[in-house]
Amino acid sequence: MRILSFYPIKTFKLILEFENKEYRIVDMKKFLQNEQGVMQDICNDINVFMSAELDDVVGTIRFKNDVDFDNTALYEAGQDLEKIVVKANRSYPVARKITRLPDNFRSKISKENERLLELLSKRY
């Protein structure tokens, strides 16, 4: 499955768009945790990581140190971004509709405060 586009995040994560229109996020630090050498450079050096480019020929990600990855491996290592967003939205309460009060609305406290200010201004 080809990668159509991607977005690197400075926390060593890639958001990938695959040809099935699915977006997946891959944590490269976890993906490469057991690797060494030039593979490890990708998740240890932000400049190498941010050098990622889309290889249009094979539809994968290639880094400036000539490392690229199998699309299927990236797909399987990634988490479905839509599921993450849906799960995150469930943890927040649903927004309530707040109706705006008329501009000339004065609460009981506001009326009392106005009356007190008026009395104070007359005394002093």
Rank of each mutant, 00 (worst) to 15 (best):
M1I: 07
M1V: 09
R2H: 07
R2V: 01
L4W: 02
F6K: 03
P8C: 07
T11V: 08
T11I: 09
K13Y: 05
L14G: 00
L14Q: 02
I15Q: 08
L16E: 03
E17V: 10
E17Q: 15
F18H: 04
F18W: 00
F18P: 02
F18Y: 11
E19N: 13
E19P: 00
E19F: 01
E19A: 12
E19R: 06
N20T: 13
N20C: 10
E22F: 02
E22L: 10
E22I: 14
E22K: 15
Y23K: 14
Y23C: 05
R24K: 15
I25H: 01
V26N: 00
V26P: 02
M28Q: 02
M28V: 05
K29H: 06
K30W: 01
K30R: 11
L32A: 05
Q33C: 11
N34V: 04
E35C: 12
V38E: 12
V38I: 11
M39G: 00
M39H: 14
Q40H: 12
I42T: 02
C43D: 13
C43I: 05
N44T: 14
N44H: 11
D45K: 05
I46G: 03
N47Q: 15
N47A: 13
V48F: 04
V48L: 07
V48D: 04
V48K: 01
M50V: 05
A52K: 03
E53L: 10
E53Q: 13
E53P: 00
L54Q: 06
L54E: 02
L54W: 03
D56E: 14
D56Y: 09
V57L: 08
V58P: 04
G59P: 02
T60R: 01
I61E: 02
I61Y: 01
R62S: 12
R62T: 13
R62C: 12
F63R: 01
N65Y: 07
V67P: 05
V67Q: 08
D68A: 09
F69L: 04
N71E: 14
N71D: 07
N71W: 02
T72N: 10
T72I: 12
A73G: 03
A73R: 14
Y75A: 06
Y75L: 03
E76K: 15
E76V: 13
E76D: 14
A77M: 06
G78P: 03
D80E: 11
L81Q: 06
E82D: 13
K83S: 14
K83F: 08
K83L: 14
I84T: 09
K87D: 15
K87M: 10
K87G: 11
A88E: 13
R90N: 14
S91V: 06
P93A: 08
P93Q: 07
R96H: 07
K97E: 12
K97V: 11
K97I: 10
I98H: 08
I98P: 00
I98D: 01
T99S: 11
T99L: 12
L101S: 04
L101A: 10
P102A: 12
P102W: 01
P102Q: 05
N104A: 11
N104I: 06
F105S: 05
F105W: 10
R106P: 00
K108S: 11
S110A: 13
E112M: 06
E114N: 11
L116T: 08
L117F: 09
L117I: 08
L119N: 10
L119D: 12
L119E: 15
L120H: 09
L120G: 08
S121G: 11
